[in-house]
């Protein structure tokens, strides 16, 4: 049994030597292998800064992703987390701590509602039937709380178009 193992080992050694071209080849291959593993354990991260301030920015970003995805190599890099996207300064979400949204379906939006929304840094999505008081609108403008009235596309900060 042990002789069989020995034979097998020498056979494999020989085969490897043939395949890699001498003992130097083995060492070289081993080196190449180790450098490869080093690379895979510490992948070079590429950080791309994205600024999402408006709907146009989002559309542009999506187009950029689609362009990048056509190349299999970059697509793989994105999947592996080697290509990372970071929110830039001009981003809406980055200017606040939290960019959650609060939906209000019925009743009224008053000053206290706005103050609560400002504390959590969230955007208000307001149904059509909901009344936004004048004071709430003023406060929203002061605190920079965005009120989005449902069924309307473009809104200005703190203002509600009726």
């Amino acid at each position: 049994m042990s002789t069989d193992n020995e034979m097998l080992r020498s056979l494999v050694r020989e085969a490897l030597r043939d395949a890699l071209g001498g003992p130097d080849g083995i060492r070289g291959a081993a080196q190449a292998l180790s450098s490869q593993t080093q690379q895979s354990s510490k992948p070079a991260q590429v950080i791309e800064v994205v600024s999402l301030g408006s709907n146009l920015d989002v559309t542009n970003f999506v187009n950029r992703i689609l362009d990048l995805a056509t190349d299999a190599k970059t697509l793989n890099a994105m999947r592996q987390g080697e290509l990372v996207f970071q929110l830039g300064n001009g981003s809406v979400a980055n200017s606040k701590q939290d960019s959650g949204t609060t939906r209000i379906d019925k009743g009224a939006v008053t000053e206290s509602t706005i103050r609560k929304a400002a504390e959590s840094g969230s955007t208000l999505i307001v149904a059509r039937k909901v009344v936004v008081t004048s004071l709430a609108r003023d406060k929203a403008r002061d605190l920079g709380v965005t009120i989005i009235r449902e069924g309307q596309q473009d809104n200005q900060k703190g203002s509600v178009m009726r």
Partner: peptide, 17 residues
Amino acid sequence: TDAGAEAVNQVGELVSQ
């Protein structure tokens, strides 16, 4: 009016303000 709206919110239905 803001306080009034708040009060109506608790009791009934606010139509407009």
